[in-house]
């Protein structure tokens, strides 16, 4: 047990950036816009969060800055995909390239600098529970906030009128339009706020997880999050499960490396990516057998208000 507890606690920590990114993308995709630029948004979020925390000395202001940067980044995507009705796949790729480039150009003078970052906040009483305490309740506030966000999104998407409107825009924009909703306004809001949440995932890496900035530090987590949205069948609760599964794979892999296994590090580092493909495969087979539903019906399809289908 003594070996497993630190691994599980590490799984929660390393799963959190992916969790934020997945939640942001779920919100965006539920409105019908697919944003593949997560990797770029996360990197810009990580850089902005780090540099703002460093200059203001406040991780909270850093997080706010990262959120704003994520909103700005996804505004480009929203403009191209919603207003100009451009190709969402290619726009997402462009966003990733742009974000990777912009963050490494702006961040070049921050390499090697560390910050105190976000401090741990053990929850009194709960953190003393044997086993569960150290795994779940001895973390930084951003982790607890991600649980609140999961609960909020579940409630918001299912039980609120705004959430229903958002899903209507993603499932049947024509019906949403006939109901008097502005599909593009809903999609803009979902893309911008979703992008802000994704950026928080990046900022988690630089402010709470590594407490430093490095070029391309997200190492594909944005893309793993894109896959996790499918794994989660657009359900925030399942996203949490998936993110911690991946956190677990990463924590396990790092642990193996640290204990000096005979398996070479590069082979161990493949694990999360291989897991992603396997997970996608299993989900797709299940979907093919009609066991899973849930993708927004109009995901990735631009909506032309004055055109007939």
């Amino acid at each position: 047990m003594e070996i497993i507890i630190p691994i599980l606690a590490a799984a929660v920590r390393s799963g959190t950036p992916i969790l934020y990114a997945t939640l942001g993308e779920i919100l965006t995709e539920k409105s019908g816009i697919s944003n593949l630029g997560l990797e770029g948004i996360m990197l810009v979020g990580a850089f902005t969060g780090f540099s703002v925390s460093l200059s203001t000395g406040s991780p909270l202001i850093g997080l706010a800055g990262a959120f704003a940067a994520g909103v700005l980044m996804s505004a480009i995507h929203a403009f191209i995909c919603i207003t100009l009705k451009g190709n969402q796949v290619v726009s997402g790729l462009a966003l990733t390239m742009f974000g990777t480039g912009a963050s490494s150009l702006l961040g070049r003078s921050y390499i090697g600098v560390t910050i105190p970052g976000l401090a741990k906040l053990p929850i009194p009483v709960l953190s003393d529970i044997p086993y569960f305490g150290p795994i779940l309740f001895n973390h930084d506030p951003l982790i607890y906030a991600s649980w609140v966000l999961v609960g909020f999104l579940c409630w918001f998407l299912v039980s609120t009128r705004t959430g229903l409107n958002l899903r209507a825009a993603g499932d049947n924009p024509r019906a949403a339009d006939a109901m008097g909703l502005s599909v593009s306004r809903i999609r803009y809001a979902a893309t911008l706020i979703g992008g802000g949440i994704v950026a928080l995932g990046g900022a988690y890496m630089s402010i709470a997880y590594n407490k430093m900035w490095a070029e391309a530090m997200t190492a594909g987590r944005g893309w793993i999050a894109v896959a996790l949205v499918i794994f989660a069948i657009w359900n925030p609760g399942r996203a949490m499960l998936g993110a911690y599964l991946f956190g677990g794979v990463e924590a396990f892999q790092l642990r193996l490396q640290a204990t000096g296994t005979s398996i070479p590090a590069p082979l161990l580092m493949m694990l999360p990516y291989i897991t992603t493909i396997l997970v996608l495969f299993i989900i797709s087979v299940k979907k093919g057998r009609g066991l899973i539903f849930g993708a927004p019906a109009s995901l990735g399809i631009p909506f032309f208000r004055e055109e007939r289908d």
Partner: peptide, 11 residues
Amino acid sequence: SSTLILQGLIL
């Protein structure tokens, strides 16, 4: 990687 900025912008 800052040429990536230009590449993204072109796209």
